[in-house]
Each structure stands twice: as C-alpha cells, then as structure tokens.
Design a binder for these strands. Sequence first.
DNA 1: CTAACACTGTTATTTTTTTCACACTGATAA
DNA 2: TTATCAGTGTGAAAAAAATAACAGTGTTAG
Lengths: 206, 206
Amino acid sequence: MAKIPEKTIERLSKYRRAVLSYQAAGKHHIFSHQLASLLHITPVQVRRDLMLIGHTGTLRRGYEIKDLIDNISEIIDTDKGQRVAVIGLGNLGKAFISYLNGKRSKLTIVAAFDINFDKIERNFAGVPCYHIDNLNEIIKTENITIGIIAVPTEQATEVAEKLVFAGIKGILNYSPKSLNVPPSVFLEEYDMITSLEKVAYYSKLQ
Amino acid sequence: MAKIPEKTIERLSKYRRAVLSYQAAGKHHIFSHQLASLLHITPVQVRRDLMLIGHTGTLRRGYEIKDLIDNISEIIDTDKGQRVAVIGLGNLGKAFISYLNGKRSKLTIVAAFDINFDKIERNFAGVPCYHIDNLNEIIKTENITIGIIAVPTEQATEVAEKLVFAGIKGILNYSPKSLNVPPSVFLEEYDMITSLEKVAYYSKLQ
DNA sequence: CTAACACTGTTATTTTTTTCACACTGATAA
DNA sequence: TTATCAGTGTGAAAAAAATAACAGTGTTAG
C-alpha cells in the first residue's frame, strides 16, 4: 500500500470513533456523506481517505461498519497493542488518564511518573505512579513504547532525554518547549497556547 | 497586508514565546537560524513567515527582538485583549487555567463553568466558577469572546450551542466530538486520542 | 426492460504549504 | 579599496492536501 498521508492517519482515528458510535446505535452501514457530516468534512475527503487504505464500500449501501473498523484498526493498531506512560501527574496528565481509561483500545496507559513524592506509589484511576528516577527501569520492564510529556516546560527537555535514553518509540509532547529527539523517535507536539492564540486571532477577525 | 496562512499564525505564536525567552536571557537580536532551531524548523520558514507579516531584519544582526515581539503582537493580539471562559472544570479545564494563569498575555481566563455543584461559587486559581446555567448571562456581562470546551463528550454539543447563542466569537474544542457552529464563529478542535493514535501509528513503523 | 437515481472510486485540478535557489547587502578583513 | 562573508528577502519550484469532476454501477421505479 502506498504511503498514507499524515492528515489521513489523523482522520482515520476519527472515522473509527465516529463509526463505533454509529455501530453502538445499531447501524451496520454508513455512507461517506454521513461520516463526512459527523466530522464536518466533505464526502470526497472520506472516500479518498478510505480509498487510500484500500477500504471499499458497497454501492447503494455505503461502507460496512464492521469491516471499516477492522480495516482502520489494521492500519493504526498493532496486534498486541502498545503501552503508554504519562510523565507528569498534574492536571493535564490526570486529564489524559481519565480520558483514555475505560476506552477499549489497543493503547493502555500503564504508568505515570512524577517528582512530587505525594503522588508516588499511589494510583491515579488505576494507573500506578512512580518517581521519575525510575523511569528508565520501568519503561523497559513494562515494555512501554510511547511517552506523553505533561510536565512543566522547564522539565520537558530533561524528561525527553530520559525517554529517548530508555528507548521510547514515540513521544507526545504537551509542553510548549519544542523538543529535540533523534529521528528514530517519532515526535508529535501540541501547544495549547498556540491553539488559543490562533482562536484569538481568528476571533478578532470575525 | 496579504492574508496570512493559518500555519504561519500558529508559528507566530511560537516565535513570540521563543523570543520572549531569548529576551529574558538578555539578548536583543536573533537570527532566523536561531529561531528556527528553537522550533526545530528551517530558517527559510522563519524568514518567510516574518516576511509575510512585514517584519524586516537587519543585516548581520538578524531580527531585533523587541520589534519582533511588537510586530507579532500587533498581528495576533487585540489592543484591549480578549476574555476567555473555560467550560468544564475537570482536570483538563484546570490544566488549562493553571497553565495560562500567570503568563503575561492579552488573553485572560475570567470564568469557568461546570454542572458540578461542588465547584460552583468556588475559585480555581483565581478564576471564579459558575453554574453552566448562567453561561449566557456571564458571557455577556463579562464580555467573553472565546470559549474553551473541556467537558465530557456527551455535553459538548449542548455547550457549544449555548456558547454560540451567547454570541461567542471563537471556540477551542477539546472534546473528541466535532462541533457544528455557524461560520460566524471560529472553531478550532483538538482531539487528544487522535494525537495519541497518530503517535502510535508512527511509533510502530519506527 | 429501460431510465433514473444515488451512491462509490479515481483522475485531474486547485489550493496551500514548504523548500530551493539565489540575488542582495552591509560589515569585516586584508 | 576590494574581496569575502554571513546574513536577509523573495521569486520559483516542489510537495502535500483538499476539492472538483466525472465515469462506473448496482438498485429501484416505472
């Protein structure tokens, strides 16, 4: 299969959740225009994305939901799933954990790390919290491949280095400090302030 | 000035914070390659972005930081600033507030809303929390133009409708449910699960 | 049986974003 | 003075992403 564009990967994740809710409502098929309207994009976009992953619909009945979920899952999941750590158990880290927990998913948060001793050896929503000094060890023993950085800006660089050193495969960085990682590690960054300032910019134009 | 691309707006926000920290370190000038390396992008990208906003550097000395901050601020800020509300005072809402608070900024979070009565009439980090039933009223009296949606998925649609009805200008939506707003309201959406699944996808390829 | 219909799949086009390539320039060194 | 250097500014090209246009097709209505 040809290389799938980054934006398509993002939409696939959304398609899957959208059709899961459709499925939960008892539906078995969905048209591109229905899926499109759930995401507020165009039907062409949907069809193109599905074309790219080789999913083919049936005429007059649209896409079969079960198949579609399977196809998307085959692209974005791994067989045995991946294990995730959250570094920084402040509000943001907690938000992520409570939000992801309970969702059936191939991605499981299996550890949290913090420097605050109050939190160590405690659980948050079933996720054990360790001291950050044990990061290297736990990442390896728990076979964690993905790290979510939710620490204050000043500590982000150091945390990233530790994650890289521990052999992490991917990092999702929520600190506004852009990180420097070797190309062998996939890095995705999201900056809340940028989003807010963007909204502010376009709001003032409205 | 010609229309500024969306991606440029996002980077401007990052440039500004990057040079602020440079300025805090006592520097007065910065080269495009320095700014680029702070954000891990190319110097050309920086120069082009600054060209687009009409900021011009001085040869051999790069860009003057003070000027640059002023120029960027002129683009993305408004004179008197904008007032922001957070809807949903769970972990995510709190994360946003504690993160934005204390940052010198033209954007101020002046209200939080929740349905949980424990939280009502309380403050979180100096931000008063109201019951969501008062949203319409407070948005208007407090002159709030931007709303950040940090409520559980099921409530997102309803909250968005209330915000739109109250005359909000822009919405930053953190619920995974894509919202439907009139074109007069600017909408920016961010979906944590999508980001995580994206990292998962690229991590497995590594 | 035939025409109209309502979908999908895909090629072509357009738009947006990034990168390349290089002209230009003032400072500096010889 | 002149050559070199290290930067900026920008037209042109390339790459990525979105949109348009439309052919193809099974289903349905008559």
